[in-house]
Write a protein that binds this DNA or RNA. Sequence first.
DNA 1: CGGCCATCCTGCACGC
DNA 2: TGCGTGCAGGATGGCC
Length: 265
Amino acid sequence: MPELPEVETVVRGLQETIVGETLIDLEIPWEKAFSPDDAYDSLMGKTITTVSRRAKFIIIEFEKGALVVHLRMTGKLTPVYPEKHVTVILHFQSGNALYFQDMRKFGRMVYTDDPQNLLSHLGPEPLSAEFTPTLFWTMLKGRKQKLKPLLLDQTFLAGLGNIYVDEALFQAGIHPESKAGSIPWKNIQSLHGAIQSILSRSIEAQGTTILNFSHGDNLSGTFQTALQVYGRKDEPCIVCETAIKKIKLAQRGTHFCPGCQRMYL
DNA sequence: CGGCCATCCTGCACGC
DNA sequence: TGCGTGCAGGATGGCC
């Protein structure tokens, strides 16, 4: 499933392939994937000027207006025609096309005149200069909820997904059920560092990073080898050999080491 | 406010 | 072998 680093990789690819393309047709085989349904006239004949990312959203900007895309679990944007699960197709004047393929059909593409406003509810970017340990401390201060659900809240911090939250909390030695406002300054610094290093290492590993854990899907690539708790239920912790525990937290599978990750209450 | 839950989807694992 | 059941998850919205 695409997390922030995968989305960043997709965006970098699109910057090379679709900027300058002019839209001449729009096909929507799966209607729920696209909104609003009267966007056709606004988009036709428009040329793509930039492609960027905000959290896990892809922003495809035209001369006027933008398509904002969220891949959710299984979405892909590809210039190569996929046989199955195509939800939206952009046809360009050049003869090229961009296919939105999405097996589970959770992904969405929205046309908007004002992408900034559409995404204004999002919290800070975890890799931005703005997101400092001091800011993180301010954000956590006084918060009473459990740490992991808060870290997954995109209005709190934008871009972290389930897998990387588990990994960051392990790396920082903090129990996912800790009370957010009770984390000591030193450990906030550790967590901040863990979040940034995991995300940036994963971006570096991009070409080969495939984090699709849904059951039988094979993990290929390099970053999987860096996963220390996610998907390792009952296996020994790589640090202390305690069996990795899996619980349900905020409706999400949550992996942690009871030996290494301390609970702050 | 915090913590639940359902919803959307499909493919795969598992048990019988 | 084959079938039914349950699980996985990002984000939103509703409920208590």
